[in-house]
Simulated assay, not measured.
Amino acid sequence: MRDDGLERAIGAAGGIAQLARKIGISQPSISNWTRVPAQRVIAVETATGVPRNDLRPDLYEQATPAELVDPVDAARAQEYALLATLLSAPPSKRLLDRLAALAGDATPLGRAHAALADAAASAVAAQVERQYFDLFVGLGRGELLPYASYYLTGFLNERPLSRLRADLTRLGIERIANNSEPEDHAAILCETMSGLADGSFNASPEAQHAFFEKHVSPWMGRLFADMESAGNVHFYRAVGAVGRTFIEIETEAFTFAN
């Protein structure tokens, strides 16, 4: 039996098939859900407009109130959430319109945001969907495999994934039932970092730093750099520039804090 949050999301999307398409997973996967899995909350919130605390009140009702979150951490959480959304599924026309309104500034990340806004403004949703397919899915496999195990070992489902699963369990984040997507996908890791940054997950700053150093820093910058140099994917080259620049900033900030 589905809980109220999942029912609201399905209704807002226009049905199970539409929700599956919006967040880039198979319809049978959603049919087997009884509630929105923790790893998919931000993607479902973005796709449907149903707030995360309604989708999973057990995870988000007790989250740190927004007014108590450091503004820098709140901005970090938003950046990670944006990357998680763009890596998990191709953006809708509505999201492209929102991205086109991003404001830039003279900082490296501000310039990357401005370039992403320009790419979104000239993008056609159907073409971006094709870019996503070619880059991450493909016929057999995409141009890039956005998984920690692959980048760190050259193979999928290796020890980096098992270590990640142990750490996610300690954070209280469960695996999605009947879903074959490994948890070391870049979108899931960005979503986890977003929850750590804004206090949604109960973890100390030291635990957040350790998670970043262990599961994000060793490889994700390379993934984004590879996206920047990929061919025929203009929109995702701009996403790669944002991601690479942000991971560089995060790495420097954690080093300074340490």
Rank of each mutant, 00 (worst) to 15 (best):
L99R: 08
A100Y: 03
D105W: 06
L109W: 05
A112Q: 13
A114V: 11
L116F: 12
L116P: 11
A117P: 02
A119F: 00
A120N: 06
A121G: 14
V124R: 06
E129Y: 03
R130P: 09
R130I: 15
Q131K: 07
F133T: 15
F133M: 10
F133Y: 09
F133C: 14
D134M: 08
F136K: 12
V137D: 04
V137M: 03
G138A: 14
L139Y: 09
G140H: 06
G142N: 10
L144K: 06
P146K: 04
S149T: 03
S149V: 04
S149C: 04
Y150P: 04
Y151Q: 08
Y151A: 10
Y151F: 07
G154Y: 01
G154E: 02
F155Q: 10
N157M: 13
N157G: 05
E158M: 06
S162L: 12
R163M: 09
R163N: 11
L164G: 09
R165M: 03
T169R: 00
T169F: 00
R170Q: 08
R170W: 00
R170S: 11
L171Q: 07
G172V: 01
I173N: 02
I173C: 04
A177F: 01
A177M: 03
N178T: 11
N178I: 06
N179S: 06
S180V: 09
P182C: 14
P182F: 05
P182S: 10
H185G: 06
A186N: 03
L189D: 10
L189E: 08
T192H: 04
T192I: 14
M193G: 08
L196C: 09
L196E: 11
A197Q: 08
G199Y: 06
F201G: 11
F201R: 09
N202H: 08
N202T: 15
A203S: 14
S204L: 12
